[in-house]
Protein backbone atom coordinates (compact mmCIF):
# COMPACT_ATOMS: atom_id res chain seq x y z
CA UNK A 1 0.00 0.00 0.00
CA UNK A 2 1.45 3.27 -1.08
CA UNK A 3 -0.25 6.27 0.48
CA UNK A 4 1.86 8.91 -1.25
CA UNK A 5 1.30 7.45 -4.69
CA UNK A 6 -2.45 7.14 -4.16
CA UNK A 7 -2.64 10.71 -2.88
CA UNK A 8 -0.79 11.98 -5.94
CA UNK A 9 -3.13 10.01 -8.18
CA UNK A 10 -6.20 11.36 -6.43
CA UNK A 11 -5.01 14.94 -6.48
CA UNK A 12 -3.31 15.25 -9.86
CA UNK A 13 -2.62 12.42 -12.27
CA UNK A 14 -5.95 10.60 -11.76
CA UNK A 15 -7.99 13.49 -10.41
CA UNK A 16 -11.63 12.38 -10.57
CA UNK A 17 -12.94 15.64 -12.02
CA UNK A 18 -10.13 17.12 -14.07
CA UNK A 19 -8.63 13.95 -15.55
CA UNK A 20 -11.21 11.16 -15.26
CA UNK A 21 -14.02 13.65 -15.99
CA UNK A 22 -16.43 11.99 -13.57
CA UNK A 23 -19.16 13.55 -11.49
CA UNK A 24 -19.55 16.63 -13.63
CA UNK A 25 -23.20 17.31 -12.81
CA UNK A 26 -22.69 18.07 -9.16
CA UNK A 27 -19.48 19.99 -9.81
CA UNK A 28 -21.15 22.30 -12.29
CA UNK A 29 -24.38 22.71 -10.40
CA UNK A 30 -23.34 23.49 -6.87
CA UNK A 31 -20.04 25.33 -7.35
CA UNK A 32 -21.70 28.73 -6.94
CA UNK A 33 -20.57 29.33 -3.36
CA UNK A 34 -17.75 28.04 -1.17
CA UNK A 35 -20.06 26.82 1.61
CA UNK A 36 -21.96 24.69 -0.92
CA UNK A 37 -18.68 23.31 -2.22
CA UNK A 38 -17.47 22.39 1.26
CA UNK A 39 -20.75 20.66 2.10
CA UNK A 40 -20.84 18.70 -1.13
CA UNK A 41 -17.13 17.86 -1.10
CA UNK A 42 -17.18 16.52 2.42
CA UNK A 43 -20.40 14.56 1.82
CA UNK A 44 -18.88 12.91 -1.24
CA UNK A 45 -15.63 12.24 0.65
CA UNK A 46 -17.49 10.46 3.45
CA UNK A 47 -19.79 8.48 1.15
CA UNK A 48 -16.95 7.51 -1.16
CA UNK A 49 -14.79 6.25 1.70
CA UNK A 50 -17.63 4.34 3.37
CA UNK A 51 -18.85 2.73 0.17
CA UNK A 52 -15.30 1.84 -0.89
CA UNK A 53 -14.73 0.10 2.44
CA UNK A 54 -18.09 -1.68 2.39
CA UNK A 55 -17.78 -2.85 -1.20
CA UNK A 56 -14.22 -4.01 -0.73
CA UNK A 57 -15.24 -5.95 2.38
CA UNK A 58 -18.21 -7.52 0.58
CA UNK A 59 -16.47 -8.26 -2.69
CA UNK A 60 -16.32 -12.01 -2.06
CA UNK A 61 -20.09 -12.23 -1.45
CA UNK A 62 -21.31 -10.11 -4.37
CA UNK A 63 -22.02 -12.21 -7.47
CA UNK A 64 -20.43 -10.54 -10.45
CA UNK A 65 -23.62 -10.65 -12.61
CA UNK A 66 -25.56 -8.30 -10.34
CA UNK A 67 -22.62 -6.39 -8.93
CA UNK A 68 -23.64 -2.98 -10.27
CA UNK A 69 -27.08 -3.23 -8.66
CA UNK A 70 -25.46 -4.30 -5.37
CA UNK A 71 -23.02 -1.39 -5.50
CA UNK A 72 -25.86 1.04 -6.12
CA UNK A 73 -27.82 -0.25 -3.13
CA UNK A 74 -24.76 0.04 -0.85
CA UNK A 75 -24.08 3.57 -2.11
CA UNK A 76 -27.74 4.60 -1.83
CA UNK A 77 -27.74 3.46 1.80
CA UNK A 78 -24.81 5.69 2.69
CA UNK A 79 -26.24 8.60 0.69
CA UNK A 80 -29.50 8.36 2.62
CA UNK A 81 -27.57 8.45 5.92
CA UNK A 82 -25.64 11.56 4.89
CA UNK A 83 -28.79 13.18 3.50
CA UNK A 84 -30.68 12.69 6.77
CA UNK A 85 -27.69 13.85 8.85
CA UNK A 86 -27.38 17.03 6.77
CA UNK A 87 -31.10 17.74 7.06
CA UNK A 88 -30.91 17.31 10.82
CA UNK A 89 -27.73 19.23 11.62
CA UNK A 90 -27.01 21.54 8.67
CA UNK A 91 -30.45 22.36 7.25
CA UNK A 92 -29.28 25.47 5.40
CA UNK A 93 -26.65 23.53 3.43
CA UNK A 94 -29.09 20.68 2.84
CA UNK A 95 -31.54 23.21 1.41
CA UNK A 96 -29.08 24.92 -0.93
CA UNK A 97 -27.70 21.60 -2.21
CA UNK A 98 -31.25 20.36 -2.68
CA UNK A 99 -31.72 17.48 -5.06
CA UNK A 100 -27.97 17.08 -5.56
CA UNK A 101 -27.46 15.29 -2.24
CA UNK A 102 -29.68 12.30 -3.16
CA UNK A 103 -28.16 12.49 -6.64
CA UNK A 104 -24.77 11.51 -5.18
CA UNK A 105 -26.11 7.96 -5.69
CA UNK A 106 -25.63 8.29 -9.42
CA UNK A 107 -22.41 10.29 -9.14
CA UNK A 108 -20.11 8.37 -11.44
CA UNK A 109 -17.06 8.93 -9.21
CA UNK A 110 -18.42 6.63 -6.53
CA UNK A 111 -19.64 3.88 -8.85
CA UNK A 112 -16.46 4.26 -10.90
CA UNK A 113 -14.19 3.75 -7.88
CA UNK A 114 -16.32 0.83 -6.67
CA UNK A 115 -16.02 -0.91 -10.03
CA UNK A 116 -12.48 0.16 -10.83
CA UNK A 117 -10.72 0.04 -7.48
CA UNK A 118 -12.40 -1.33 -4.38
CA UNK A 119 -13.78 -4.46 -6.05
CA UNK A 120 -10.18 -5.53 -6.69
CA UNK A 121 -8.24 -4.22 -3.68
CA UNK A 122 -8.01 -4.74 0.07
CA UNK A 123 -10.19 -2.87 2.56
CA UNK A 124 -7.37 -0.64 3.79
CA UNK A 125 -6.24 0.32 0.31
CA UNK A 126 -9.85 1.05 -0.67
CA UNK A 127 -10.30 3.31 2.34
CA UNK A 128 -7.16 5.26 1.41
CA UNK A 129 -8.31 5.42 -2.18
CA UNK A 130 -11.70 6.78 -1.09
CA UNK A 131 -10.06 9.47 1.02
CA UNK A 132 -7.57 10.49 -1.68
CA UNK A 133 -10.13 10.61 -4.48
CA UNK A 134 -12.53 12.45 -2.20
CA UNK A 135 -9.87 15.05 -1.39
CA UNK A 136 -9.13 15.43 -5.10
CA UNK A 137 -12.81 16.03 -5.81
CA UNK A 138 -13.22 18.45 -2.90
CA UNK A 139 -10.15 20.48 -3.87
CA UNK A 140 -11.31 20.95 -7.46
CA UNK A 141 -14.75 21.88 -6.20
CA UNK A 142 -13.27 24.44 -3.80
CA UNK A 143 -11.08 26.02 -6.49
CA UNK A 144 -14.09 26.33 -8.77
CA UNK A 145 -16.33 27.62 -5.97
CA UNK A 146 -13.80 30.22 -4.86
CA UNK A 147 -13.41 31.47 -8.42
CA UNK A 148 -17.14 31.64 -9.06
CA UNK A 149 -18.16 33.11 -5.72
CA UNK A 150 -15.38 35.71 -5.79
CA UNK A 151 -16.16 36.92 -9.30
CA UNK A 152 -19.88 36.26 -9.31
CA UNK A 153 -20.93 37.72 -5.98
CA UNK A 154 -17.74 39.37 -4.69
CA UNK A 155 -17.84 37.33 -1.47
CA UNK A 156 -16.11 34.34 0.10
CA UNK A 157 -18.12 32.11 2.46
CA UNK A 158 -20.71 34.89 2.47
CA UNK A 159 -18.26 37.59 3.63
CA UNK A 160 -17.69 40.59 1.34
CA UNK A 161 -14.12 40.34 0.03
CA UNK A 162 -14.01 42.40 -3.12
CA UNK A 163 -13.97 46.22 -2.75
CA UNK A 164 -17.40 47.81 -2.74
CA UNK A 165 -16.76 49.41 -6.13
CA UNK A 166 -16.60 45.94 -7.74
CA UNK A 167 -19.71 45.05 -9.71
CA UNK A 168 -20.27 41.29 -9.38
CA UNK A 169 -20.24 39.49 -12.72
CA UNK A 170 -23.55 37.71 -12.31
CA UNK A 171 -22.85 35.59 -15.38
CA UNK A 172 -20.20 33.60 -13.49
CA UNK A 173 -22.72 32.18 -10.99
CA UNK A 174 -25.23 31.37 -13.72
CA UNK A 175 -25.01 28.00 -15.52
CA UNK A 176 -23.00 29.62 -18.32
CA UNK A 177 -20.23 30.53 -15.92
CA UNK A 178 -20.15 26.98 -14.59
CA UNK A 179 -19.45 25.49 -18.02
CA UNK A 180 -16.92 28.17 -18.94
CA UNK A 181 -14.95 28.11 -15.70
CA UNK A 182 -14.77 24.31 -15.57
CA UNK A 183 -13.64 24.32 -19.22
CA UNK A 184 -10.88 26.79 -18.42
CA UNK A 185 -9.81 24.84 -15.33
CA UNK A 186 -9.49 21.58 -17.31
CA UNK A 187 -7.59 23.45 -20.04
CA UNK A 188 -5.09 24.75 -17.46
CA UNK A 189 -4.74 21.22 -16.07
CA UNK A 190 -4.11 19.76 -19.54
CA UNK A 191 -1.53 22.49 -20.22
CA UNK A 192 0.51 21.55 -17.15
CA UNK A 193 0.10 17.79 -17.64
CA UNK A 194 1.33 18.13 -21.23
CA UNK A 195 4.27 20.21 -20.05
CA UNK A 196 5.35 17.71 -17.43
CA UNK A 197 4.97 14.89 -19.96
CA UNK A 198 7.22 16.74 -22.41
CA UNK A 199 9.77 17.33 -19.68
CA UNK A 200 9.78 13.64 -18.77
CA UNK A 201 10.17 12.48 -22.35
CA UNK A 202 13.00 14.98 -22.88
CA UNK A 203 14.75 13.68 -19.79
CA UNK A 204 14.41 10.14 -21.02
CA UNK A 205 15.73 11.13 -24.43
CA UNK A 206 18.75 12.79 -22.84
CA UNK A 207 19.47 9.77 -20.70
CA UNK A 208 19.26 7.41 -23.63
Amino acid sequence: MNFKKQLKEGLITQNPVLVQLLGMCSVLAISTSVSNGLGMGISVLIILTCSNVAISALKKFIPSEVRIACYIVVIAGFVTCVDLLLQAFLPSIAKSLGVFIPLIVVNCIILGRAEGFSSKNSVAASAVDGICQGIGYTLVLLVLCTFRELLGSGTLLGIQVMPASYTPALMVVLPVGGFLSLGLLIAVMQYFLNKSKEKNSKKEAEQA
Partner: peptide
Protein backbone atom coordinates in the same frame (compact mmCIF):
# COMPACT_ATOMS: atom_id res chain seq x y z
CA UNK B 1 -8.04 24.62 -31.17
CA UNK B 2 -5.10 25.46 -28.89
CA UNK B 3 -3.49 22.23 -27.70
CA UNK B 4 -4.47 22.55 -24.06
CA UNK B 5 -8.12 23.18 -25.04
CA UNK B 6 -8.41 20.01 -27.14
CA UNK B 7 -11.13 17.56 -26.16
CA UNK B 8 -13.20 18.32 -23.10
CA UNK B 9 -12.28 21.95 -22.36
CA UNK B 10 -13.46 23.17 -25.75
CA UNK B 11 -16.57 21.00 -25.44
CA UNK B 12 -17.38 22.58 -22.08
CA UNK B 13 -16.87 26.06 -23.49
CA UNK B 14 -19.22 25.19 -26.37
CA UNK B 15 -21.77 23.96 -23.86
CA UNK B 16 -21.34 27.22 -21.96
CA UNK B 17 -22.12 29.24 -25.07
CA UNK B 18 -25.19 27.09 -25.76
CA UNK B 19 -26.28 27.64 -22.15
CA UNK B 20 -25.91 31.36 -22.75
CA UNK B 21 -28.34 31.01 -25.65
CA UNK B 22 -30.82 29.04 -23.55
CA UNK B 23 -30.61 31.70 -20.86
Amino acid sequence: TPKCFEGFPIALITAGLLALGFM
